[in-house]
């Protein structure tokens, strides 16, 4: 028997002064699942998140949490303090005048197990021993861990996270991200995470929801799928761009292959007609060829190089393992490898 999803969003829509911000967003988060909402800055992800958290009353659509309707078409609105949804903020928002222990304690309402629970939570995030410190004296990573512990203290069934690692530097981000995944799985908490960082979304989420501009204004969900799927087979051009470096070239598809200005390519899925070919940089093979296209720039990235190649179809992004011959100004021949997706 299928379990009721922890979070159900149906046809959510909301306007701000100048126009729509979200249109027709529908999404489900199952029990103990982590869904990441990926979108550009200002694309309405915050509005979506705040609607779920209970700070915004969406004008259209419905939200149910653990089966209970918390908002419906601007009516029947249950405010944040009564929803039982935990929230981790981008700037962690710890109470500056309270100690760590008091911060974590804040959301616990039953006196009985409060102290032990605080201890357990702090140990879980690896901050035991820092109970009496003030938030201002901790590092960024430590502060975010406290924020997580605090949000989990009231045992919420759903956790929403608003770009939680945006203020942390890269190695820290990775570490905390993994910890977050583990803690959530352990505690059995569902999570909705909102971010513009694709690496985060792809690495942490069980499923990724892509928020992209809707034709009538505002944003809509264009694709909800597992990270590998979204990367391999993006639903729209916008999704393609959001999920990784990509070049889109107009092509003519006939069945399992397509032809474009760079030659022919094998398609993932049968398709006919004019469309755009999704070319990931790692799907491009280059061989030096004096009659070929010019490499206009080269950027070293540790494992290899990302090259910009000037082609009749526009600039092409290619990735290559270290190769001393592929320098700026060198001419190369291009070959498209593997199976490609197409978008309209």
């Amino acid at each position: 028997m299928p379990e009721t999803p922890m979070l159900q969003i149906q046809e959510l829509g909301h306007d701000y002064g100048d126009g729509p911000v979200l249109t027709g967003v529908s999404l489900e988060v199952n029990s103990a699942e982590l869904v990441a909402v990926l979108g550009t800055s200002g694309s309405g992800k915050s509005t979506l998140l705040r609607s779920v958290a209970g700070f915004v009353n969406p004008q259209r659509g419905a939200i149910q949490i653990a089966g209970r309707t918390v908002s419906q078409d601007g009516r029947e609105f249950i405010p944040a303090e009564s929803r039982g949804v935990g929230m981790v903020f981008q700037d962690h928002a710890l109470f500056a005048h309270m100690t760590i222990a008091e911060n974590v304690r804040f959301g616990i309402h039953r006196e009985a197990d409060a102290l032990t629970r605080v201890q357990a939570l702090l140990t879980m995030v690896g901050l035991q021993g820092l109970e009496d410190r003030l938030p201002g004296s901790l590092s960024g990573g430590q502060q975010q861990r406290v924020a997580l512990a605090r949000a989990l203290a009231p045992r919420p069934s759903l956790l929403v996270l608003d770009e939680p690692f945006a203020n942390l530097d890269a190695p820290l981000r990775r570490g905390i991200g993994i910890e977050l995944q583990e803690i959530l799985r352990e505690q059995g908490v569902s999570a909705l995470l909102v971010t513009h960082e694709r690496s985060e979304a792809l690495a942490l989420a069980d499923r990724v929801a892509i928020l992209d501009a809707a034709p009538e204004g505002g944003a809509q969900l264009v694709q909800v799928a597992r990270p590998e799927e979204v990367h391999r087979e993006p639903a729209t051009a916008g999704a393609a761009r959001l999920t990784g470096p990509v070049t889109l070239i107009p092509c003519e598809a006939n069945g399992s292959t397509a032809t474009c200005a760079l030659g022919s390519a094998t398609l993932l899925r049968s398709h006919t007609g004019t469309c755009q070919l999704v070319i990931r940089p790692e799907q491009v093979t280059l061989t030096p060829d004096p009659t070929g296209h010019v490499i206009t720039s080269r950027r070293f990235e540790g494992a290899g190089y990302t090259l910009d190649i000037d082609t009749p179809a526009g600039p092409l992004l290619a990735w290559t393992p270290p190769d001393p011959t592929l320098l700026r100004g060198v001419r190369v021949a291009i070959q498209l490898e593997g199976k490609h997706a197409t978008v309209d």
Binding site: F55, A80, V85, G86, M87, D91, F95, G107, A151
Partner: peptide
């Protein structure tokens, strides 16, 4: 943000 955090933690 602090006030919203408090609200998310259920404080009236």
């Amino acid at each position: 943000a602090e006030e919203e955090a408090a609200r998310a933690l259920g404080a009236p």
